[in-house]
């Protein structure tokens, strides 16, 4: 019996679980790379790979945060606006005359602002009890409005160390942003898998009533996931401001979409409780590589956005078909 247990233990931590979407995703990814590379060989050049790696991190980081929210069975579509606010806070606070805040403090303020936005969302969803989509649709508009308000003109940040945060490389080839992404992903993976908080997230999403009966504080768990999502969206904003060395009201416009697509594609079920961050890693690479590939193939920007909508729809179709099949198979 001991033998059986060890085997099944390995089974559970195995990435390639039978009903996981990850293997399919990886195959899709390899095929995709082959196609893009045959259209434009530059696609697999070192420079381009570096640029893909550097650009996917923003959406990757935000997807990690949003994943926690979706796992509880909620949504956060305000992430794009949160990104914008965080970027502008970076630029504005850095430029406050006479204060000369150290850049670390500026970044911290931006991240805290993101967490605060997450807390507002979380409060409205858990305490007031508004549907999370409607809540974040509202805060999406509010914070986009605020972003425009604060950034009536482009705010620049010419400060080498700050720019290094988003544009730096280690070992000449590995973008720093990729390290943030992978670091955060691994950290959150461990949190989700090996901490009480992480398991509570899954339990809340799988069956909120049962979780409540088991003494899990459903509201508190949900609340914190919104904070995580807000903070990661703010990280995205900091990185974007640093990569471009300025901030604008438009930053992050339409990102809610991109991030949601990554999560759905990653197999994070919209019903909550199902999916792992491994899928998010692969989905982030796929989506980043697609937009890069389309750009290299000279597809106009508008089409690229349409493509994203299409991927979102296909992803939710697959999700729905999968859930339906599981339901049928369940005896």
């Amino acid at each position: 019996m001991a033998n059986k247990n060890t085997k099944s233990f390995l089974d559970t931590i195995n990435v390639f679980k039978k009903n996981s979407m990850t293997p399919t995703l990886i195959i899709v990814y390899i095929l995709m790379i082959a196609i893009f590379a045959s259209v434009n060989p530059l696609y697999i050049s070192l420079t381009n790979i570096k640029s893909i790696l550097a650009t996917i991190s923003i959406s990757g980081i935000m997807a990690v945060g949003l994943t926690t929210v979706i796992l509880t069975g909620n949504f956060d579509i305000s992430v794009g606006s949160t990104l914008g606010i965080a970027a502008i806070i970076c630029a504005k606070f850095y430029n406050i005359e006479g204060l000369n805040l150290p850049i670390g403090v500026v970044i911290l303020i931006a991240l805290l602002a993101g967490a605060a936005i997450g807390a507002i969302n979380g409060f409205l969803v858990t305490v007031v009890g508004i549907n999370s989509i409607i809540t974040t649709l509202g805060t999406l508009a509010i914070f986009r409005g605020l972003a425009y308000f604060f950034a009536t003109e482009t705010a620049r940040i010419y400060y080498k160390p700050f720019i290094f945060v988003g544009r730096g490389y280690v070992f000449n080839n590995v973008p720093l942003t990729l390290i943030y992404f992978i670091g955060l992903l691994v950290l959150m993976y461990l949190v989700l898998r090996f901490t009480k908080f992480g398991r509570n997230i899954y339990q809340v999403g799988a069956n909120a009533d049962a979780a409540r009966l088991a003494g899990v504080s459903v509201d508190r768990t949900t609340f914190f996931t919104f904070i995580i999502s807000g903070a990661t969206a703010a990280m995205g904003g900091v990185i974007m401001a640093s990569q471009l060395a300025f901030a604008q009201g438009e930053f992050g416009l339409g990102y809610e979409f991109k991030i949601l697509t990554i999560c759905v594609l990653a197999g994070i079920s919209l019903a909550g409780g199902r999916g792992t961050l491994v899928g998010v890693l692969v989905a982030t690479f796929i989506l980043g590589s697609i937009s890069n590939g389309l750009a290299l193939a000279d597809v106009p920007i508008e089409w690229r956005e349409a493509f994203q909508g299409l991927i979102l729809i296909v992803a939710i179709l697959i999700d729905s078909i999968r859930v339906r099949r599981e339901k049928l198979l369940r005896a």
Partner: peptide, 12 residues
């Protein structure tokens, strides 16, 4: 931009 802000506030 205020109008957008108010739209969001109104909804919530």
């Amino acid at each position: 931009y205020y109008i957008q802000l108010f739209q969001g506030l109104a909804l919530i």
